[in-house]
Design a protein around this nucleic acid. Sequence first.
DNA 1: CTGAAAGCGCTAACAA
DNA 2: TTGTTAGCGCTTTCAG
Lengths: 335, 335
Amino acid sequence: MVTIRDVAARANVSVTTVSRVLNNKPDVSEATKRRVKKAIEELGYKPSGLARGLVLQKTNSIGLIIPDISNPFFPAIVKGIERRAKELGYSLLLCTTDNDKQEETEALALLRSKQVDGIILSFSLQSQEALLELEKQGFPIVQIDRQVKKSGYPAVTIDNQKSAFKATEFLINQGHTKIGHVTGDLNVETALQRLDGFRLALKKHGVEYREDWVLPGDFGRETGKACMERFIAMSERPTAIFFANDLMAFGAYEAIFNHGLNIPEDFSIIGHDNIDVASVIKPGLTTMEQPQYRLGQIAAEKLIGMIEGKQDSPAQTVVLESDLVVRESVKQIAP
Amino acid sequence: MVTIRDVAARANVSVTTVSRVLNNKPDVSEATKRRVKKAIEELGYKPSGLARGLVLQKTNSIGLIIPDISNPFFPAIVKGIERRAKELGYSLLLCTTDNDKQEETEALALLRSKQVDGIILSFSLQSQEALLELEKQGFPIVQIDRQVKKSGYPAVTIDNQKSAFKATEFLINQGHTKIGHVTGDLNVETALQRLDGFRLALKKHGVEYREDWVLPGDFGRETGKACMERFIAMSERPTAIFFANDLMAFGAYEAIFNHGLNIPEDFSIIGHDNIDVASVIKPGLTTMEQPQYRLGQIAAEKLIGMIEGKQDSPAQTVVLESDLVVRESVKQIAP
DNA sequence: CTGAAAGCGCTAACAA
DNA sequence: TTGTTAGCGCTTTCAG
């Protein structure tokens, strides 16, 4: 490995001087600067991030902890984070957890030991204490998509309750009064909030809330399919169902088609997230759009702001809007 | 920050001894081991990966460079890599490039400066020299999905030529003789190979190859749509089209439906990759399945094998099989 | 404008 | 079984 010493020797200067030109510090004559640069070039020298990080106590890398990158909701978020972080001079260490509490804890420990400057994460409710601990130490963290409320860490999310409310209200406005819901993983704040939004909308419009039409899901496609099978098997069925995310709605599509039934004639379906393919499937899935890329960008900016201590005020949670995207999966019912 | 020195002081031993228990080295009495562990516990001490990396010249992290994480082809690969790497004690630094040559070069430099132990990458053909350079230095790299042939670095891929051949042959066996193709980004080896496979299949079966039915794409959905528009506008149309990936085929679905045309009645469509949603859309997309998760796992294993010098033979390229998945997007034509 | 030297937190000879 | 010491490659006072 070629080190700063080799460069110094070759350029006939001290390591200090080399370090100076490396970091664009003043007080180096043009002549020596040129010589040093030449030596760097010739030797193909690259400074060691490790050594630099050790002395500066700063790595210019941030950690990202998400449940599952193969869940289509996350890639756009990751992209947003990665692109913005890169622009701001940071790189990304990726950990996934499958929503497992132990994996979450391990990921946190791992990233700390790698000495990332901060972490963006999407945690289940089970891992609160770990966050509280880090908060005491003043370690920079931004939550994304999901907020573990008890911690004081800022989050970048949409208003999930409101979003679910809007989705449900749309169903009601289309004339539906028999409405079911498949929840997300109830260990996740997001899922809880969407359930709340669903309830609130029914209540506001005086529509009956039926326990047996609210099925516990987990944001996975298979579960969406399984829950839909249960709806189909019911003697009294809802006419419309709000799925806590599009992936589960896709599962429902499968189940419905497998039974020779139709959307929206037999069931009106609304999803959440507007993942990329929601527009490709037939009938097009009506859903709530989240600005994932933006969420990612903002989270990266916010975290790096915290790291570099530029926040004017204590870091605030950012809540973006979600928008209804109407396609063909919801039928209008005559009153 | 609490360092190994603090632990040593608290446990009344030397830093060496602490280091020994940290790394499970022998020659530490049970008694002192306990004392040290207690001190570590009480202080909440975490070893600095930076410092360790600096002295060991090993970071236990690997770099991953891919074009775009929001392309649905990659998440499963990333997951496979991440999961396997984690099992083997490595973490993942993620860089994306948008297939841009400069970004590829930068990512390589960045990861080197972060001193990752090795890199898994999916490069365009434009970045050959950079690889050659690293190869001279004996730096461990594994290519995934795409192989830059000139480098001696192993790759983990499917046989893209054969796969495209099989896809095209399926069209022919269904009775099609007017067959078009939308290529991938021709700066990418994979796209070239699929085009070759397409040609070969036509040739073998004596089916005419028409230049004007081979449209240059870029693996993006928009392009798939645009190319499909061109096919639709032709006075003489192909009856079947092989798209170099599913994403472009999805774009084609849009275009076809927008014109009030039907699949497979008006156009038979076959894709490539079998990304998750290929089964959800209507009609189900016939396509070639790639084992993405496996590709990722194997790439991680292979790279780490290279890093740890356990390879029995010089690292070999691994070629996995792809399988035809028949759904409803291809019509059988009476001879 | 330039350099010597201390030290970031850790591991590994080498001694004891 | 334990400790002393010399670095890993870099930045940064502090002196020239």
